[in-house]
Amino acid sequence: GTEDLKEEAKKALKKGDKERAKRALKKAGLSEDQIKKFIKEVL
Rank of each mutant, 00 (worst) to 15 (best):
K37I: 14
E3R: 09
E41Q: 11
E32D: 13
L43A: 07
K10L: 12
L43E: 09
G1M: 13
I39K: 01
E32T: 07
K22F: 14
V42E: 07
D33F: 07
F38V: 03
D17R: 04
K26R: 15
R23P: 00
K27Q: 12
I35Q: 03
I39L: 07
R20P: 02
K6F: 15
L30M: 12
T2A: 12
D4E: 12
A12L: 13
I35W: 03
E7N: 10
K37Q: 15
K36R: 13
E7M: 09
D17Q: 08
A28R: 02
K11L: 13
G16Q: 03
Q34F: 05
A21F: 04
D4N: 10
I35P: 00
D4L: 12
A28L: 12
K14A: 13
E3K: 09
K18V: 15
E41A: 12
R23I: 14
L13V: 05
D4M: 12
S31W: 02
G16A: 03
K6Q: 09
L43G: 05
K26H: 08
K10H: 06
L5T: 03
T2D: 11
A9N: 01
E7D: 09
D4Y: 13
E7P: 01
D4C: 12
A28Q: 03
D4V: 10
V42R: 04
L30Q: 02
K14F: 13
K26E: 13
Q34E: 14
F38A: 02
D33T: 09
K15L: 14
K27D: 09
L43C: 09
A12D: 04
R23F: 06
K10G: 03
D33Q: 09
Q34I: 03
K40A: 15
G1T: 14
K14Q: 13
L25W: 01
K14Y: 14
E3P: 07
G29E: 02
R23Q: 14
G16W: 05
L30A: 02
G29C: 03
K15E: 15
I39A: 02
K6I: 15
L13R: 01
R23V: 12
G16N: 05
T2S: 11
A9M: 03
R20A: 15
I35V: 05
R20S: 14
I39T: 03
K27W: 05
I39Y: 04
K15N: 14
R23Y: 07
L13C: 04
E19T: 07
E32V: 08
L5E: 04
I35Y: 02
K36C: 10
D4A: 14
K36Y: 12
D4W: 15
T2W: 14
K27Y: 06
E3M: 10
I35R: 02
F38S: 01
K6R: 10
K37Y: 08
R23E: 14
E3C: 07
L43W: 09
D33I: 08
A9K: 01
Q34Y: 05
A9D: 01
S31T: 13
D17S: 04
G16I: 02
E8F: 12
D17I: 02
E8P: 01
